[in-house]
Design a protein around this nucleic acid. Structure first.
Length: 427
RNA sequence: GCGGGUGUGGUGUAGGGGUUAACACGUCUGGUUGUGGCCCAGAAGAUCGUGGGUUCAAAUCCCACCACUCGCCCCA
């Protein structure tokens, strides 16, 4: 044990019992995105560190708290495991000249991202996300499209009781003015702030809004709301988003304290919350990032999208006791007695599989008792054991032992076994 | 980076200074000629998280570290 190589902290093996949820989630995302007209892409897991420094922002915690996995290359360049997806999406948009594709470009991807954080329930150092983005469109309807895509994904997966949290974070025109007013208000109540919030006040004042320190609810209730300080453009955009959500009967909670940790967000920000999956209740987070493309040196391109962590969706589905479609095990096990019967058994197993019939082959380096092979078949949940014995083989037949009640053992000609099994299995 | 909890075979547990570390489940193999589930027999599998210390003697007491886990921060 002591010299055994261990799993890295914050990394998880996805075992079959969890992985079957992934299959369901990925399938649902694939079908839904197709209906919404999103195209599937993949972008590299490694990007230039500069992309995240400029895109995500130096004020973000990824950067400040050294949460990124960064590698210094021999030629002095620096590369980083993506801590989030959007910057890479926008970089791919620019790199591949997608601005000359029919606009907007609607894309989604599924894959891993990495942050060196302290793991806890629903938060891992490597986690996978479904990410959906609409690039090159500023219509509030695009915001609503990605929001509804997220909500409908959860609905299709069987979630209930989710809350949709919505806010506008303004834009470079109105945000600074709001921050000034917020800082002024909080400055007037400086003595009521916890030490950590005093620090946030100087470094990133908006962060004070999602402070969970005691007493903040009362203090922030009197704070200026961003919604009252948006510029005309942002206010109109926010109103349009709400109007469309109303028209779709999608309920939402305006949460003026919803602030996202990444610098690039403009206008719309949203999260979907679920209770009961630990402290990490955000199932999905997203928003608009109209300035990001320019930040990373591309043409001005509006964008909106969201990311949703698959591990958290799995936690949520388990919490909500969502039923999964049953995956049936192979109905057949091919047993043998070694020697030439083994060679025939191997051939039979592949023949069945090619014919579309699931089959296990009983492995046996040397001989193995029929009892042992029967036990294996039982444990695997097989319905029939094909016994490839010498007596049968010389007669050109195979003995079929059923493992379910009410069926008789049969002897079937080798040439008819596929048809025979198909008929029984269809019933 | 900071707190709390937990570390004994694959899993779940018992044992709480004395020399072959126990039990259940699981796994594997058998129970006479080629046949499952139950039952029976047997086997494999743990240097008791790691490293120090105390002691004649440590899984057991002490310290440190590490890992896992939950939470803070932050986020999916």
């Amino acid at each position: 044990m002591s010299n055994q190589i261990q799993r890295l902290t914050g990394m998880h093996d996805v075992l079959p019992d969890d992985r079957r949820y992934w299959d369901v989630i990925i399938a649902a995302a694939g079908s839904l995105t197709q209906r919404y007209g999103f195209q599937h892409i993949d972008t590299p897991i490694l990007e230039a560190t500069e992309l995240f420094v400029r895109g995500v922002g130096q004020g973000s915690d990824f950067f400040v708290q050294k949460e990124m996995y960064t590698i210094q290359e021999a030629d002095d360049s620096s590369i980083t495991l993506r801590p989030e997806f959007t910057a890479g999406f926008v970089r791919a948009y620019i790199s591949n000249g997608m601005h000359s594709w029919p606009q907007p470009v609607k894309l989604y991807t599924i894959g891993p991202s990495f942050r060196r954080e302290r793991p806890q329930a629903g938060r891992l150092r490597q986690h996978s996300q479904i990410n959906c983005e609409i690039l090159g469109e500023e219509d509030p309807a695009a915001d609503v499209e990605v929001m509804m895509l997220a909500m409908n994904l959860y609905r299709e997966l069987g979630f209930r009781g989710l809350t949709f949290q919505l806010n506008s974070t303004g834009c470079p025109v109105c945000k600074p003015g709001y921050i000034e007013k917020l800082v002024a208000y909080l400055g007037d109540h400086h003595d009521r702030l916890a030490a950590i919030d005093k620090e946030r006040l100087t470094k990133n004042p908006l962060r004070v809004l999602d402070s969970k320190e005691p007493g903040m609810d009362e203090l922030l209730a009197g704070a200026p709301h961003i919604a009252d300080h948006l510029c005309d453009d942002c206010r109109e955009h926010f109103a349009d988003v709400r109007e469309l959500l109303d028209a779709l009967n999608q309920s939402y909670t305006i949460n003026f304290r919803l602030v996202r940790g990444i610098d690039y967000y403009t206008k719309t920000v949203f999260e979907v919350w679920q209770e009961g999956i630990g402290a990490q209740s955000a199932l999905c987070g997203g928003g608009r990032y109209d300035g990001l493309a320019e930040d990373i040196g591309g043409p001005s391109t509006p964008g909106v999208g969201f990311g949703s962590g698959i591990e958290r969706i799995v936690l949520g589905m388990r919490e909500q006791k969502v039923d999964l479609p049953e995956v049936l095990p192979p109905p057949v096990l091919v047993a043998h007695f070694g020697g030439t019967t083994k060679i025939s058994a191997v051939g039979m197993a592949f023949r069945l599989r090619e014919a579309g019939i699931g089959a296990h082959l009983a492995f046996a380096r040397r001989g193995r008792s029929m009892k042992s092979q029967m036990r294996e078949a039982d444990r695997h949940g097989a319905r029939y054991v094909l016994i490839m014995g010498e007596n049968e083989l010389v007669q050109g037949v195979v003995a079929v032992r059923p493992l379910v009640e009410g069926e008789e053992q049969a002897v079937v000609p080798l040439s008819e076994i596929v048809t025979w099994l198909r008929e029984r299995l269809a019933a």
